[in-house]
């Protein structure tokens, strides 16, 4: 029974590479051996394994799936180079400009929030001039307003920077994916 099963399976696997065939057959030999050790009959084992035809079909479909996977060929390497060149140009022309514009804007935001935060301290140093003035309360309000606005702007800038950072990473990942061609 084992022999019948094995020879049928072998016949069905004819068109696969020799090494592949032997590998597969070995698995089933081992299966028979283990089953026999457990006291099963060859008949029982063969029946629960199923049709050799069905197994061969399965093996071949898996084999084809594996073969269809992209193996880097001259063609795909050429494509990758083409995509890379195209991406470099596209990035140089369309992405670099806005990228630095946004980065600059963010830097500006940080700078102005820093100025807003520092302004009250400057005011504090010239306090002796201000304290005598009739509208010294205005000065205090200006300091508080500036401090509050500065804190808000720092928080806002941090959030914006984080978004920008994430977007940049995503875009870089997208570039890599395009080149890999997946």
């Amino acid at each position: 029974m084992q022999n019948k099963f094995m020879s049928e399976l072998k016949e069905q696997l004819q068109d696969l590479p020799k090494a592949e065939q032997q590998d597969i057959l070995y698995d089933y030999e081992e299966h028979f051996r283990s089953g026999l050790e457990e006291g099963k009959t060859e008949e029982e084992i063969a029946v629960s394994l199923g049709q050799p035809q069905a197994i061969a079909r399965e093996v071949k479909s898996e084999f084809r799936v594996k073969e269809a996977k992209p193996v880097p060929s001259a063609d795909s390497v050429g494509k990758a180079i083409l995509v890379t060149v195209a991406l470099v140009f596209f990035n140089l022309i369309f992405i670099i400009g806005p990228f630095f514009a946004i980065a600059g804007t963010l830097l500006g935001l940080f700078a102005s929030s820093l100025a807003l935060l520092l302004f009250p301290f400057g005011l504090l140093f010239s306090w002796h001039q201000l304290s005598g003035a009739p509208d010294w309360l205005m000065g205090v309000f200006a300091m508080l307003t500036s401090l509050g606005a500065g804190v808000l702007m720092v928080v806002g800038s941090i959030v914006l920077t984080r978004w920008f950072y994430r977007l940049t990473i995503k875009y870089l990942q997208f570039n890599v994916m395009m080149i890999k061609g997946s």
Partner: peptide
């Protein structure tokens, strides 16, 4: 392999032979 096949077929019916191609993949 045999161990895996037994552990599964104890729980529900399978054509045991199909496990090996799967393991190969």
């Amino acid at each position: 392999g045999y161990e895996l096949v037994q552990m599964i077929s104890e729980k529900f019916f399978i054509a045991e032979g199909t496990v090996y191609p799967l393991l190969r993949r």
